[in-house]
Design a protein around this nucleic acid. Structure first.
Length: 269
DNA sequence: CTTGGGACCTGGCTGC
DNA sequence: TGCAGCCAGGTCCCAA
């Protein structure tokens, strides 16, 4: 499930291979991901465009094109971008041919991924909150934002207009590190808890980027390799297994229809 | 404005 | 062996 660390890894590993290249052919196997554009429009507008830069914003990948427009891809749950995969399969959705003979392939088992071609980047990612690892996102800003919200802290961390890029796995991991129960109301956190959570978010995301993302489900890096961040997970996707701190079984409860994993002993109400 | 619930989408897994 | 039902969750849409 690509969250910020996974998308950051894809950007980092793809950029050296595709920056400066241009699109020579597009093959659409499934038009569903194309947002608001026909197959003909999409191919016609994209072929011939040079990739000036590859960027990430939240969980979105942004290809800056030579005509000033942007190609934006959101992988959602099961999307992947593979460089020259050995073979394609029934989950192959779009194939992008590049001028050096390389091929960038978008695959997506559950067909939830979305591809935009837009004149203005902000029309797609304009509502996103701050980048959690950017210097502007300070502990004080985090604290003042939290005070305005009374939803469960887990739900607030997942709100992309609050902060961009945190998904279900890393929200659970950060709340565990900060010893905060996911159902706690955001504005009920003490100053100490708020600072601990801020630091936990930074640590969890930074460490996961270092480990090239978490291959819990279908996440693959562009070369087809798995990430290793999931080997460090303490609670995420570990329902019933012992807490690494105290040994008590990790619980799972639904919050906003998302599985939330926590230690009932270490994470206080 | 915030909050919460359902829909989308498909495959792996479990239990009967 | 078959099949129903749960689980996975990022985002949009809608109602309160």
């Amino acid at each position: 499930m690509p969250e910020l660390p996974e998308v950051e890894t894809i950007k980092n590993e793809l950029a050296p291979h595709i920056t400066g290249r241009w699109f020579t052919s597009i093959t659409i196997c499934d038009a569903k991901p194309l947002h608001g554009l026909s197959v003909e429009e999409f191919c016609h507008k994209l072929v011939g465009q040079r990739i000036e830069q590859l960027k990430r914003r939240g969980k979105y990948l942004i290809f800056q094109l030579s005509n000033g427009e942007v190609l934006i891809i959101h992988l959602r749950m099961t999307g992947a971008l593979l460089l020259n995969p050995e073979r394609t399969d029934r989950y192959t959705r779009v194939m992008f041919g590049l001028d050096d003979g390389n091929q960038l392939v978008f695959t997506d088992r559950r067909r939830l991924g979305v591809i935009w071609l837009a004149e203005e980047e902000q029309s797609v990612v304009g509502k996103l909150g701050p980048e959690p690892l950017a210097s502007e996102f300070t502990a004080n800003r985090f604290a003042s934002l939290l005070q305005k919200r009374q939803a469960p802290i887990k739900a607030v961390l997942l709100d992309q207009t609050f902060v961009a890029g945190i998904g279900n796995m890393y929200a659970d991991e950060a709340l565990f590190l900060a010893k905060i129960r996911p159902l706690r109301k955001a504005n009920s956190l003490s100053n100490q808890e708020t600072r601990a959570l801020y630091q936990a978010v930074q640590d969890v995301l930074t460490q996961a980027i270092r480990n090239k993302g978490a291959s819990i489900d279908t996440y693959k890096r562009p070369g087809g390799e798995n990430g290793t961040a999931h080997f460090s997970f303490r609670v995420a996707h570990r329902g019933g297994k012992p807490c690494p701190n105290c040994g008590m079984p990790i619980q799972r409860i639904p919050i906003r229809n998302r599985g939330s994993y926590f230690c009932p002993n270490c994470q206080k109400l």
